[in-house]
Each structure stands twice: as structure tokens, then as C-alpha cells.
């Protein structure tokens, strides 16, 4: 298993999951674009220290670029509450408020996406399943949770496989956006069909190997954990709750965050 410097793979999966969730909750509660920007910068710096940095950045770009473009189009050009007009382009009006809203929403989503991608590309699936099971989550439910959390890495691997099969039969993928969009169109349906087909097949294999059994499961290896990690999880949880509480209090008692 490859390890980068300051690798998140070494952490207990619950610590990295709590970290990702806390970062998302606190940033959303703060609702300040400058804070979101600082957090996003920190997350990107952390990403670059991981062995799978390239994969995380690729996935983040694929999700965020279209999303940011849509935000800019919708809110940058058509923001009903916008007062400070910067430019007028026919029916569209670029306003300062609209751009700031797009910036705020875009950065917050950026934090959310990068935090969870960082988690899903660095978590060791067997360890995550093991800690969820140790906390009493039924195995099937644990499998669903783990599958959902690691869907993107799994899909990325499968797309690579489908692309190899298509290239071996003459698909030429150029560097242009049009070429990449064409490739994505050709890979989307096979990806979904193969994920659906495999989920059925996998369910049979897992059942036959006793995965859904009711007796307590044991574990070949213990998942690494430590007192500092335990403490960090508690602190992150308290900080998240506090951030939400402050946000709700400000909203209820007239202030604006």
C-alpha cells in the first residue's frame, strides 16, 4: 500500500471521516468566503502530500469545474437581489452581489467536495468496514455506507478499464474538451450498467461467504487507533456542534453571520 508524506491512510478511518465531516460543517456554518478559501487552500496543501494526490485532484476538477461554471452563469449574470451593477450584457446583469454569492457558494462546495474526496481516496476500505462493524452497524448497511463513500474511486477505476477496452477498439481521446466530452458520453452507460451488474453478482458472493450472518464478526487485523486520535475526534465533534449552535443563535437573535 503506497503511503505519501503526512499520509491520511495511516489514520483510523473514523478520524479522517470525522475530520472531513467537521470541515464541511464548520465551513458551511461559518458562511464566509474568505474562511472557505483558507480552508480550501489548507485542504489542497494536505492533498498534495498524499500518494493519490493526482487522482483526488482529477476527480475534484471533474466535479467542480462544471459546477463553478454553472454557478457563475446563474448567479453572476442573473442575481435578482444584485444592486451594484458592474456590467450589462443584454438581458443579463453582472452584479457585485451576484458574483460574491457565486464565490461564496462555489468555495463552500469546493471545501465539501475536496474534503470528502480526500477521505474517500485515502481511506482503507477494510478498516472502515471493520470499525463500522465494531460499532454495531449491520454488515450489509456497513457495506452500503462504504460503497457510497468510496463510489468515486471505484467508478474511476472502472472508467479506466472501460476506456482501455474502447481505445483497444479505435476510440481516440484527444486533449480537447469536445473529445473528452465524447469519451465521457461513450463511457457513461457502460459504467452504470457494469456497476449495476456487478452489485448483483457481488451480493451473491458476499452472502455465500457469510457476510450477512448475524453472529459477531471477528477481524484479522486490528485497526490502528490512539488516544490523540480519539481526543481529536471528540474535539472536532464539539467544534462542529459549536459552529452550528453559533450559526443558529445568530440567525434566531437577529444577527447575520
Amino acid at each position: 500500500m503506497s503511503r505519501g508524506t503526512l499520509s491520511l491512510e495511516r489514520l483510523n478511518p473514523l478520524t479522517s471521516l470525522t475530520g472531513a465531516a467537521a470541515v464541511a460543517v464548520i465551513t458551511t456554518a461559518a458562511g464566509q468566503w474568505a474562511f472557505s478559501l483558507a480552508v480550501l487552500g489548507g485542504l489542497l496543501a494536505l492533498t498534495l502530500r498524499q500518494a493519490r494526490a493526482a487522482a483526488v485532484l482529477r476527480a475534484a476538477t471533474a466535479i467542480l469545474l462544471p459546477f463553478w461554471a454553472a454557478l457563475l452563469l446563474v448567479h453572476g449574470l442573473f442575481f435578482p437581489e444584485g444592486r451594484t451593477v458592474l456590467a450589462e450584457l443584454g438581458p443579463a446583469t453582472v452584479t457585485r452581489e451576484g458574483l460574491l454569492f457565486a464565490l461564496d457558494a462555489g468555495l463552500r462546495t469546493g471545501v465539501f467536495v475536496v474534503a470528502f474526496l480526500l477521505f474517500s481516496f485515502t481511506v482503507r476500505v477494510p478498516e472502515l468496514l471493520s470499525v463500522l462493524s465494531a460499532r454495531g452497524l449491520p454488515p450489509r448497511l456497513g457495506f452500503v455506507v462504504v460503497s457510497a463513500l468510496t463510489l468515486l474511486p471505484a467508478a474511476a477505476q472502472r472508467i479506466r478499464r472501460i476506456r482501455a477496452a474502447q481505445e483497444a477498439r479505435g476510440l481516440v481521446i484527444g486533449r480537447s474538451l469536445a473529445s473528452r466530452l465524447l469519451a465521457a458520453r461513450l463511457q457513461a452507460v457502460p459504467l452504470v450498467l457494469s456497476l449495476v451488474h456487478e452489485s448483483g453478482e457481488r451480493a451473491q458472493a458476499l452472502d455465500a461467504r457469510g457476510f450477512s450472518g448475524r453472529q459477531p464478526h471477528t477481524s484479522l487485523r486490528t485497526v490502528p487507533d490512539s488516544v490523540p486520535q480519539w481526543a481529536a475526534r471528540r474535539v472536532l465533534l464539539v467544534l462542529s456542534l459549536a459552529a452550528v449552535a453559533v450559526r443558529v443563535a445568530l440567525a434566531l437573535f437577529g444577527g447575520r453571520a
Binding site: 458472493a205 461467504r209 457469510g210 450472518g213 464478526h217 484479522l220
Partner: peptide, 21 residues
Amino acid sequence: MLSTVRDTVAGELAFGLENLG
């Protein structure tokens, strides 16, 4: 027949045994 939720051969071999406790 592989579980796909084990990242080593030893872990995959252990999968069925772990489920039996």
C-alpha cells in the same frame, strides 16, 4: 467470488472466517 472490500490476499482469505467469528 472476491469480497472487493479487502486490500490484501491474506485479508481476502480471512474474509469468510471473520464472518464466522
